[in-house]
Simulated scan of single mutants.
Amino acid sequence: MAVATMVVLATGNAAVAFADDLSAKEIYERAAPATVRIIGKTGAGTGFIYDADKGLIVTNAHVVLDEPSLRVGVQDRAPVAARLLGIDPCEDLAVLTFSNPQPDLKALKFGDSKKVSFADNVTALGYPESIEAQGAQKPVFTTGAVQNPDVKDSTPDPDLPRYPETIQHSATLNPGNSGGPLLNGKAEVVGINTLSGVGDVQGQYYAISSDHVRPLLEQLAAGDVKNDPGWLLTTVQNPQLADYFAEEDAAKVAATQKEFKDQDGMVVTYSRTNSPAYKAKLGPGDVITGLKGTAVTSYADVCDVLQSAAPGETLPVDGMYSPLNANGKDMKAGEAWTTDLVVDKGK
């Protein structure tokens, strides 16, 4: 074992190394075989194996949500089919497994995130988009220091859920790193990397604390689906709103944002066939303004209502038609509508 020199923290973001910390190379060698690349039809991200015997992988929900097919690549191995076991978009967590058993898997051990302190050394592993897509490859790593070990109720962007417990750190993350491990000096997972410079957190990086994650994994691995009505939502004034619709709808997107310049809400960009949202006749272009009598102006607002609802509860939904789905006859842009959303009972 390499012995690190003790560093005395003075000012700034310098990291503190402890005498029993592993070197960055040792941390990487331990963690890389268990850090996986998750490949969907519309995007890719990172995850890690936390139970080698059962082949269980944890990642962010936003990496796998509504992906019609998934593959997982383990270090130098070719990607193989995987299946989603359980998901909770409001916790931004999901558990998946290999469609067929895989030999000689390695797993990462969870550490105690409450023991993480300011300026501790941390290492992030993942598969950022900058590396060559597809095929056999290895994860990359970055190192940094803990800037805040216990960030409570973070809501960094209106398109993201509320994160109850996160670690803010300076180990650089990029798109594609989501779902990967944040490791302490013993190569233990103290967080799941989730946020990389979005909204008001430009240049800052956040991981969901391991102590928050661990109690949720058993139910997700058992097949629980929570807080997932089967929709994709984004804020009506999202600058990237046009990316969710066909190119020929660009004028309608611009008209929608102009129509709702003084009205906050969440735009439905997709509803999964036979999901609660689909059964409530919610579809692309619908602008949701209220849920269970509560105004919703962000995804965190939506999650606050969903997380407090009982399984099977009926939630009244208020909204308005937009230029994206108004037909000028029975559906006019700006016209109000109501419907009922029945909360999924889970698995």
Score class of each variant (00 low, 15 high):
V213Y: 12
E188G: 07
T194Y: 11
G126C: 03
Q204C: 00
I192P: 03
F118I: 08
E188Y: 03
T155K: 13
D150W: 07
S196H: 01
L183N: 13
A145G: 11
Q137W: 09
K115D: 11
L195H: 10
A221E: 08
A133M: 09
V201T: 09
V190Y: 14
T143L: 03
P139M: 07
A221D: 08
E188T: 09
V198G: 00
V198T: 06
P156H: 14
G197C: 08
S196M: 03
I167S: 10
Q168Y: 12
L182N: 11
L125S: 08
I131D: 06
Q137N: 15
T194N: 15
L216Y: 09
L195E: 07
D211L: 15
N193Y: 05
L182I: 13
N148L: 10
R162G: 01
A133H: 00
K152V: 11
A221Q: 07
V140Y: 09
P128F: 06
D120S: 00
V198W: 04
I131Y: 01
Q147M: 03
E218F: 07
D200V: 14
A221I: 12
D159W: 05
A124H: 03
F110G: 02
P161Y: 01
S209I: 12
V189K: 04
D112R: 13
T123K: 08
G126A: 02
V201C: 00
L183S: 10
P139F: 10
V146L: 06
A119M: 04
S130M: 07
G176K: 00
D120H: 01
G197H: 10
F141Y: 14
A221W: 09
T166K: 10
T155M: 11
G185Y: 04
Q134D: 04
